[in-house]
Amino acid sequence: MKVLRLGIGLAIVFAASWALAQGMADKGATDKRRSGTQDMGEALQKMQDDDTANPGMLFVQLGGQLWGKAAGAAGKSCADCHGGAASMKGVAARYPAIPKDADAPVDLEGRINLCRTANQQAAGFPPESRELLALAAYVAHQSRGLPIAPPDDPKLVPFRLKGQDLWKVRQGQLNLSCAICHDDNAGRKLAGVTIPEAHPTGYPIYRLEWQTLGSLKRRLRNCLAGIRAEPYAYDATEYVMLDLFLMDRARGMMLESPGVRP
């Protein structure tokens, strides 16, 4: 008799939580993906959310100044061709992409440098330079709050698949893959650090450890160094392919640029 009652009790509890789960599913709460922001302490989350405290916003401001400054043999500013910041809304959410008449994808920084060289007829900015990061932050900031929306361009597919291969391959002296940490062990502690799911939602990010803004490329180079793998060259397409894969994996998640990270 007692056993029976216990059984009924359990069934009711189970049914209740199942109903709750259904309700959550209706609200779209089944997406279990977590931005790295959610793995940070409250103080850092506040810093990211508060424009007056987020150090990345200084770069966005600098980017705004550069946007209006004429440069190169063409003597044109970004604004001369593109108009105001609003023209960049949603752009960062769909990069990397393949430029018109090209056959390989470029990331957002690569696209900006294309405009530098081809349209302004000026020298490209060096990787991780203040100017390039500031312009990338300015452009990406216009997509803050928008869902990541990679383009359907079929020409991107082979590059994205290559990115997935790179994600899964073990490398470096420690013989680890990105997937081992970020898929299989996300949420666990690597020494004291919570392993994030590695969604590229916040880039470029202000990283406290760097004391400056940095690109996704720089972040990936850090992870490669961590497993004692040879980083790809700065201009290597491997980064763009990984970026493509990561953006697809994060499809629909919200952009938060400029992110803050520890």
Binding site: V169, Q173, L174, N175, R228
Partner: peptide, 24 residues
Amino acid sequence: TIMPAYYRTSGLQRVARNFDGKTI
């Protein structure tokens, strides 16, 4: 296993130059 092999140099890919050919 995800545990690195601490005394083996074969079968590894793209090891950083300063660690190449060395055991951990």
